[in-house]
């Protein structure tokens, strides 16, 4: 496996669109060829060489190529978009669409990433060591086919709309999640080790959400069905199991309706009336935390 390293040289004035930076985009190319690849800023086209120092080498195939991107990439979009194999390591913070539509390989973001990471993901592994923005592992606008497969793990917190229209795969969040988790999900599994706010599993058709922390407000369409033992990261826990969203349509299999499943920590007060003060206090906390966006899903 060969490694090619790109180090950003200057801060883009607008956002830089660098969809070429992925094992697929760089494999089999010489350093000079890589430097000549296009990146975009607004209507203007530049080259990778104008924005990045490029060292190392690539292999003939994406699968045998590791790409390391260094520096402050918080103004660079589309890193690892559509990657299908190989390895990509982003050493700083990155902007939107990290690993969007990726179908294979391993992408590690050592910092935080902005919105739409893992959009429409079909496979591979996306590890985010910092925080992630809104719409992690979600569908692109209008698409009913969100994340299909693969694994996303976030060490920090995530914004709103995680796993929107999720169909498969797994998302593990070690920190907290903002509103709307697994909305419209029809499959897949979302684990939140920290706390959630509200609207967990709304309009869920199928799939699983496991929440270890608290939830401010439960959706009205979830019904407690008993306790079950589940396993996450090798740890077994007995949790309260709920089915829902009872307000949503559900398929039948072998004559039985199939529901979405929500697991809550047994001790967690899964009540609908968490006090307003507690909620406001938590909202204030969340606002302070960097990279957890303000309430709401988009600024639209």
């Amino acid at each position: 496996m060969e490694t090619v390293t790109l180090t950003i040289k200057k801060t883009p004035t607008l956002m830089l669109e660098a969809e070429a930076i992925s094992p697929d985009g760089l494999a089999g190319k010489s350093l000079d060829q890589i430097k000549a690849l296009p990146v975009h800023m607004g209507r203007e086209q530049f080259t990778i060489g104008e924005y990045f120092d490029v060292t190392g080498a690539t292999s003939a195939t994406a699968g045998e190529t590791k790409v390391v991107v260094k520096g402050d990439l918080s103004r660079v979009k589309y890193l690892g978009t559509k990657m299908s194999a190989g390895e990509l390591v982003i050493e700083g913070n990155a902007d939107m669409y990290v690993g969007a539509w990726m179908s294979g390989g391993k992408l590690t973001a050592k910092g935080s990433v902005d919105g739409f990471a893992g959009t429409g993901m079909k496979g591979g592994e996306l590890l985010i060591e910092g925080n992630a923005g809104n719409y992690l592992g979600s569908a692109y606008r209008g698409d009913w086919r969100g994340m299909q497969a693969g694994l996303i793990r976030v060490k920090g917190n995530v914004g709103s709309d995680t796993g929107y229209f999720m169909n498969g795969g797994e998302i593990i969040i070690e920190g907290n999640a903002d509103v709307h988790v697994g909305t419209h999900a029809e499959g897949g599994k979302i684990v939140i080790k920290g706390n959630a706010k509200s609207r967990v599993g709304g309009q869920m058709v199928e799939g699983t959400i496991i929440l270890f922390g608290t939830v401010d407000v439960m959706m009205p369409g979830f019904k407690y069905i008993g306790d079950e033992e589940i396993e996450v990261d090798g740890q077994k826990t007995v949790m309260s199991a709920y089915i829902g969203d009872l307000g949503e349509r559900h398929r039948k299999r072998k004559g039985e309706s199939v529901y979405g499943k929500l697991y809550l920590a047994k001790a967690a007060p899964a009540d609908a009336g968490a006090s307003r003060d507690a909620r406001l206090a938590r909202a204030r906390e969340a606002k302070k935390a960097r990279f957890v966006p303000v309430e709401g899903t988009t600024s639209a």
């Binding site: 709304g202 009205p220 369409g221 009872l246 609908a272």
Partner: peptide
């Protein structure tokens, strides 16, 4: 800010399912 929950509750009610006492 609880429109989503109330609308969801209406859908639960249309389907004849049980609701929490207050939404």
């Amino acid at each position: 800010g609880r429109d989503y929950e109330l609308l969801s509750a209406l859908r639960v009610a249309f389907r004849g399912e049980d609701l929490p006492d207050v939404v």
